[in-house]
Design a protein around this nucleic acid. Structure first.
Lengths: 188, 188
DNA sequence: GCCTCCATGTAATTGGTTACATGATTCT
DNA sequence: AGAATCATGTAACCAATTACATGGAGGC
């Protein structure tokens, strides 16, 4: 079972949705958590149905099929949550350029990091807006909305921390003019 | 060009290495940045050589082949760094379980988050040790080591922020006993 | 002589993206 | 009538992991 499958089970546990609905949700509301294209979603739904973890409850116009999570599906998600450790692959493609910055002139490295700082601040702003939206939405306070709020808070703290880090990193690529002094953490 | 290719170009720009050396480096020193198995590295080296971005400079015992980055390779990395924006896929598999926590009893959700906090604190400790090692290594202060130190600092700040966040998140899953009070950010 | 580590490769499978392909309904 | 959007699917390709496969060199 992949993360995508658990996300699908979770979403179909809240309310019945079609593959099309799920695709739109990934595009519009879940970009901060997980993404998937319709070409991946449709086959996945078929497989989950084969396994009896979701079932189709409605046939709408234009061949629309609406699914919801079964008891077996719920049990499977709960089992996974109880057994899963928080370990994650620390693979972070955003740090690859940083690792290579020594190949540039220091001024260019600082320029890269300045863009990095701006990027994280923009992301942080967007997350604050997302928090706002969820707080004022009709189902605000509901258990799923509460979980989503906790996710958004994690992302916000991450972006804020990275913005701060980028500012600090710029100082690490300063031109050394005179004596380089003992450089024990001026910030961190 | 993939992140892996740029990482390889960067490592082979520091000093000549074989596929075997690179494999060991990924396993032992680069787990915080990027990982790759030998089965991916060997074909990739062949492709980079075909493109003239690296070349083989030595033939050792047991068929050992040592490569280093060419001028063309260096030019390519530099071009990429200047043109690359800091955008990254915000896909974070570690947040998927959080998104699903509303499916558990609150006590179980808190237990998950407690494990999460512990995990991030352990990671943070290991990163501090890695910082220690790099600070006391013979090539400490060299440009590549400096870039790596900046990477490690990013990872450390990330893990610390997530540990703090997990502590806060536990309070979000408190049992509501009496009046739930206005819950405007008691921490964040 | 045997075990460990050095050293390189290929094949099969998985998860995901991009591109291809089709058709129904609704709105103007 | 035409455009936009709803709605579902398949095929080709890519990056990465797991498994398969082989052999040389050095230490005990």
């Amino acid at each position: 079972m992949t993360p995508l499958q658990y996300v699908l089970l979770g979403m179909l546990a809240r309310s019945p949705l079609s593959g099309y609905d799920l695709t739109k949700l990934f595009e519009r509301n879940l970009e901060h958590l997980w993404t998937a294209k319709h070409s991946q979603i449709y086959p996945e739904l078929a497989r989950l149905q084969d396994q009896g973890l979701i079932n189709q409850i409605e046939n709408g116009p234009r061949g629309r099929k609406t699914y919801q999570t079964t008891e077996a599906g719920l049990t499977e998600v709960r089992r996974w949550l109880r057994e899963t450790g928080p370990e994650r692959p620390p693979q972070n493609s955003g740090l690859v350029p940083i690792f290579l910055l020594w190949l540039l002139e220091k001024a260019e490295a600082r320029a890269y990091l300045a863009r990095e700082a701006t990027y994280h601040r923009t992301q942080a702003e967007q997350l604050e807006q997302a928090q706002e939206r969820i707080a004022t939405s009709p189902w605000s306070g509901s258990p799923p909305a509460q979980s989503m709020a906790v996710v958004l808070e994690a992302r916000l703290r991450y972006e804020s921390a990275m913005a701060e880090w980028a500012d600090w990193a710029i100082t690490q690529f300063a031109e050394e003019r005179s004596v380089p002094a003992v450089s024990q953490s001026e910030d961190a």
